[in-house]
């Protein structure tokens, strides 16, 4: 086997995957807050628009990563939808925009039933965006570390964790009863998600340990990189988990939770960048010498 680290995708794709997942999760969680936690129409409108804005910012980087960004309109020619996750992703993203904006309009005009249905559809598309970012990498058969069912799960859990982190920032400044209630619900959900992320990561690396040479090399690249071990694992996962767990047991601890949220966002981005960076092709012997 010839093992070659991939260099084609880098920062730009990592930024896209991060903001795509964050945007989708923020929209989905924000709509839950409005529909189920009575957070009011402006919260629903604000978080849905924030989610779409983040998704748009991410998409900008995806377009900039094209050989010629001006050819981006071709992305709407989704002939490869039967098997391509970029084409399927385009459809999911278009769904997120369409149903997200319809939900915002319905919320603004207080059309209750229509808002509920558009909200659920927008949530579904937001969820789809978070999962698709993992499936996008997953489809590359030549990079075994990406070609595992654990990756879409990891990215989905991480995206929702970053979405919770962002919502905690939004909610930290509000002192009304509903906001307090929803803040603690999001905080508890994030503690659950970070714990789950640690478990998925453990399974991912345990699987990699018995994997082929390229998988072992990818895992080794990550575990020997301080950005992963110290930056992501310690500062991006374990520290916010401890801080959020501590904050959840204390009164007036929103500041700590907000700081933990910043660490979660930092960790979420690092995870995507490092997973992309550690992609190793496993070519049959002879191709790369």
């Amino acid at each position: 086997m010839d093992l070659v680290q991939q260099h084609l995708w880098g920062w730009f794709i990592a930024i896209y995957l991060f903001f795509g997942g964050l945007g989708g999760a923020t929209m989905a969680l924000g709509i839950v807050g409005e529909l189920r936690f009575n957070k009011g129409k402006w919260f629903g409108i604000g978080t849905a628009l924030l989610g779409l804005a983040l998704l748009s910012f991410g998409l900008l980087w995806l377009v900039l990563d094209l050989i010629d960004p001006f050819r981006f309109l071709l992305a709407f020619w989704i002939k490869g939808i039967g098997s391509s996750w970029i084409a399927r992703g385009m459809l999911i993203i278009m769904g997120a925009y369409i149903f997200g904006i319809l939900y915002v309009a319905a919320a603004f005009f207080e059309s209750k039933t229509f808002k509920k249905w558009m909200g659920y559809l927008a949530m579904f598309c937001g969820f789809g965006v978070t999962t698709y970012t993992g499936l996008l990498l997953n489809a590359n058969v030549g990079i075994p570390f990406w070609h595992t069912p654990a990756l879409p799960v990891l990215f989905t859990v991480s995206a929702f964790s970053t979405g919770c982190a962002l919502l905690m920032w939004v909610l930290a400044g509000k002192n009304d009863h509903e906001s307090e209630h929803f803040f603690h619900a999001v905080e508890s959900f994030d503690i659950f998600l970070i714990s789950l992320e640690l478990l998925v990561l453990f399974a991912y690396f345990d699987f990699a340990r018995g994997g082929n040479l390229a998988v072992v090399k990818s895992a080794h690249l990550l575990l020997s990189n301080p950005l992963f071990t110290i930056g992501f694992l310690i500062f991006g996962l374990i520290a916010p988990l401890i801080l959020e767990a501590y904050a959840s047991m204390k009164e007036n601890s929103k500041g700590i939770a907000a700081f933990a949220s910043a660490l979660v966002l930092f960790g979420g981005f690092l995870l995507r960048y490092l997973i992309i960076w550690a992609g190793v092709f496993q070519y049959p012997h002879g191709l790369a010498g």
Partner: peptide, 23 residues
């Protein structure tokens, strides 16, 4: 005429057979 230039095919090829024809 239809090539978006996303590079997805380069990443998916397990034989390193593709490259970008850039500006």
């Amino acid at each position: 005429d239809l090539c978006l230039g996303c590079g997805y095919c380069i990443e998916a090829c397990p034989y390193d057979a593709r490259y970008e024809y850039e500006k």
